[in-house]
Design a protein around this nucleic acid. Structure first.
Lengths: 205, 205
DNA sequence: TCGTTGCGAAACTTGGTCGTATCGAAATTA
DNA sequence: TAATTTCGATACGACCAAGTTTCGCAACGA
């Protein structure tokens, strides 16, 4: 028990540079954001991009995958606040958050990795899904379920399928939709189109 | 002008083996189907898988991308026949074709490439889109437009957005939906859900 | 039969990355 | 000041894949 034992017993010597750590994480995300797959990321490229020695990376992470896991984990998921006034409004809020994120190269390329390398890096994906995907999924689910409960949405809906409807549409638009940024009113149009349905007449029995 | 000038003036020497060519293409598609990205494909792996010397590959394609372009180009797009009786039926046919294709590892992994490597291999993607994506896109578009024309679908629909709705939902399901094969009635459920809409009441003005 | 071309296999050169080690300088504690 | 630890830089040996070349054999036309 030394005199300065306030939780973190700082060892002697030069402390690790937080700036270097941040630079490494940023460089990793940048490279991913430029379209690199996990398997093409090289420690050397990351070190060079970050302006850092390889030693500094290996001192912190024992291998590439651990580094990528940490890098992806720093992508926070600040869900938009939901007004809760109507299911329609909340759906638009959620989808508009997706639209805005789809405009960022980083998010887009992380999504690329999630789509294409999930099978090869299950550990990585597991952590990433837990951190970034699950919160959104659950937010969307709770909104949909609330809508069913309040009658704003039809009873008997397949909630998972509804979620696929919204998420899939937004993702498809961001990847294959019109070039450039997604239109600002996309979320609203998607939600209204889905809520209202496409049918021209409601001649159901 | 020799005596045998029938269009293809066969040069002297042993002719190129069509079998080898086919084996190379197949091996390429197999490896892609096993989850390899374009950048991870190695000519050596392809040659080894195809039971072929590297020379035989380099004699035909000057680089990896040309080979992959040719390989993907051989993936045919046999669209399902459309009954044309109702827009609903045709939509189900198209979406069910997607569902069935999503069950094939090859198609799935080609889709992975399309999603994640489109930016890095624009030439490749251009040809692939033209060959495999466009026909489907146009088939879907014509069905939707016919629906609007006949009144089966609401007037004033954003046709591109409708297409994103269907394509995106199916793709999302195949990637993030329940594990294993997609349920056989998925296409029907998606189409009906979208046509009918989610709203619980139609209190629109 | 002979010349030409393709074949698969193997050797080879080149270049990139890995993970480790070493260096002098810098930052911190004691 | 001395001890300790990290810093960025660089060098190292090992490995792997790319792309080229060489080899002996096979398949074709003349």
């Amino acid at each position: 028990m030394t005199i300065q034992d306030s939780g973190t017993a700082r060892p002697a010597g030069r402390p690790r540079s937080e700036k270097a750590e941040k630079a490494i994480i940023d460089a990793t995300l940048d490279l991913i954001g430029e379209g690199m797959g996990v398997s093409e990321l090289s420690i050397e490229a990351i070190a060079s991009r970050a302006g850092v020695g390889k030693t500094t990376i290996y001192r912190r992470w024992s291998n590439k995958e651990d580094l990528v896991v940490d890098a992806l984990s720093t992508l926070k998921a600040p869900l938009p606040p939901l007004s809760g006034t109507s299911v329609r409004d909340d759906l638009i809020s959620l989808l508009d958050a997706m639209r805005r994120e789809a405009g960022q190269a980083r998010t887009r390329c992380v999504m690329n990795i999630a789509m294409s390398e999930a099978d090869r890096y299950p550990r990585l994906m597991e952590r990433f899904v837990k951190r970034a995907v699950e919160p959104r999924r659950e937010a969307l689910r709770s909104v949909v379920e609330r809508g069913v409960a309040t009658g704003e949405l039809r009873a008997g809906l397949d909630v998972d399928l509804v979620m696929s409807l919204f998420s899939g549409t937004m993702m498809w638009q961001s990847k294959w939709g019109p070039a450039g940024d997604l239109p600002a009113d996309l979320a609203e149009r998607v939600v209204d189109m889905v809520l209202l349905g496409l049918a021209g007449d409601r001649a159901e029995p």
